[in-house]
Design a protein around this nucleic acid. Structure first.
Lengths: 348, 348
DNA sequence: CGCTGGCACTCGGGATCGGTGAGTGCCAGA
DNA sequence: TCTGGCACTCACCGATCCCGAGTGCCAGCG
């Protein structure tokens, strides 16, 4: 019915106005700025209903209305239309990301780019090891009983570990067991998804020449450990200075808990949640269920399947900002950047 | 003379009191808390002289005195005695840093540790490439015209680059030119300080077998480029949440410029200045000569020469905080952590 | 000669207090 | 069902006042 419909127009207008002005918005201002075709009095009635239903609230009696988390949620789900990126923005993305040298570089540029585009804090997760494949395994002998093992994935991520090895006793003379090991490992692992590395390890332990089994066992053990490490999901954060935009207005308590959470990688990883490529996830205020994230929203998406198919993501990236944020714009930026990063990683 | 001497006691007391209470300190409070053996009236006279000389200032007429940058400088240079770390702190350092897996891990733990010990922002620079030596060079063929070159230094730093190579035409049949290249490069470079890599490159270009020269040239060029990159000095920052301690009291303007500077790696690198191992450098307020660092001090030191000799540092680490900071404690923490990190990197 | 207690003075910060105006809810009429 | 009108409510702002910490100066004392 037309009645209900207008009420939603009003809600949308409130969100838009509040996001852009950061002032509680009153009925008169709404009537003046948004062509709703009715008088302030009518709008007041609608607002009363919206407040009743929990979509907006008054900071105090004689002030205008402010969207609640529920209001933003409704706006994001039902009222916002996708806002395409401007040509300038598209160009910025390309200019910023092209010419990156290696993975670290790609990720740190991405984070800076996203922070700049959205004027908020940006966050990106390193490509998950277990969903990457082995590009190369390198073995360097540090001492008679210590090897340095370097794992390079197809996404360009590099991990290194020092491995204690048992002495090699029964090696055929004249060959370097480390060189043998290197060849063996690369033969077995290159191209293998790390999630399936367990199988390969088992295979290898059976088929490896007797005198190398000790080495293979030691190296494999470290490899599997590395994959299992809970902290292996590293994170890059940028644009924290943007938290101070709008003075202390946006984050009422203080920036403290937010800054702390951003340094506590685990927290952020949990907040980004299960990210799918192509599907932008928005968590608003209390939905984040983390003290200190009251007043903050997280917009995240997975990157890494160039096709935008339903593959699992290599990792997530996203933006953290005040609930009072430009959702359509942020979502568009996040989506576009993720797509571009996915391409970059796929082709490198 | 005893006169002059007491005045310095007063200055010291003012600094200590102000650092611990964050309130401008008055003559009465000083007399009560510090056993100076004279009455408030006398202290007032001394304070008048100190103010005259520019060591302290009054925020406004009817308030106590606050140290100026010059006052802090004098305190650091002449009045503070070294404060040894507590046993608990020593233990914390060991507990925190032992068990680090690789270089990234060492650095990120260090930064967290230092932030926690000093309750301020901590900063650490990756070991400078040019002062490291080559531990291993790895070459992987990605495509017929593209190689992945991985450089591993003795400090555990790993850099990778993709190199476009010319086609190899006149290779002897039956051998893999990439394997040859790998052996050649490692033979030539392992153990060489990267600062001297230029010489080795020149040598190699002369002595390498004809059919490999194209490859060697391409790889060497990339190597030299990597070293020359101005941005190669990466930086890790932690503990930014500590900036919000003491509300907005410490950093009058806002956190904004500071947070921005901390993300702008170049700025911080410049602020840390030329770091020597074993010699803690303190820059106070305006001495940093960077807008936004008014009210901030930087305490930095080089790490990486285990012996504490006059060798060049591998990199710098330090702390950024309000000028109103516990200098003796911070300097002790910075020095101790740097020494420990130096050891860790040397033995790995 | 340097230290001390006393004293008048200054001035920032907090508390108090109307006035103002934006914004609301309600109601009667079109 | 919308609209204009009207009484009411408060947050905010500025003015005013008071209080007390802190100062500078001075005369006296050991």
């Amino acid at each position: 019915m037309a009645h209900e419909d207008r009420r939603l127009q009003v809600l949308r207008a409130i969100v838009q106005d509040y996001v852009s002005t950061n002032d509680p918005v009153g009925s008169k201002a709404l009537a003046a700025r948004y062509d709703l075709g009715v008088s302030p009095a009518t709008i007041r009635n609608d607002m009363a209903v919206l407040e009743e239903e929990g979509y907006i609230a008054q900071p105090h009696t004689s002030a205008g209305r402010v969207p609640t988390d529920k209001g933003y949620r409704f706006f994001v789900d039902r009222l916002s239309q996708v806002k395409p990126l401007s040509a300038a923005e598209r160009r910025a993305i390309e200019r910023f990301l092209d010419g990156a040298l290696d993975l670290d570089d790609v990720l740190s540029r991405t984070v800076r780019l996203l922070a700049q585009l959205t004027r908020n804090v940006a966050v990106i997760q390193y490509p998950t090891l277990s969903r990457s494949a082995v590009r190369h395994l390198e073995v360097v002998q540090l001492a008679s009983n210590r090897l340095l093992v370097v794992l390079i994935t197809d996404t360009g991520r590099v991990e290194q570990r020092v491995v204690e090895i048992p002495p090699v006793t029964d090696a055929p003379t004249g060959v370097d067991p480390v060189a043998e090991l290197r060849t063996l490992l690369n033969g077995a692992f290159v191209g293998v998804k790390l999630a399936e590395a367990g199988l390969t390890v088992a295979d290898l332990l059976d088929t490896a020449p007797q005198h190398l089994r000790g080495l293979v066992a030691a190296v494999s053990a470290t490899l599997v450990e590395t994959l299992a490490e809970p902290g292996e999901d590293r994170l890059l954060v940028g644009g924290t200075a943007n938290l101070t935009r709008g003075g202390a207005l946006d984050f009422p308590g203080s920036l403290r808990p937010l800054l702390e959470a951003l340094e506590e990688q685990v927290v952020v990883l949990r907040l980004m949640g299960e990210v799918d490529p192509g599907h932008v996830l928005v968590r608003i205020g209390e939905e984040n269920a983390h003290e200190g994230f009251t007043g903050a929203s997280v917009v995240s998406v997975g990157y890494g399947s160039a096709g935008g198919t339903t593959d699992l993501a290599l990792g997530g990236l996203g933006v953290v900002g005040p609930t009072r944020m430009d959702y359509p714009g942020t979502m568009a930026a996040v989506r576009a950047v993720a797509r571009y990063v996915g391409q970059l990683l796929a082709e490198s």
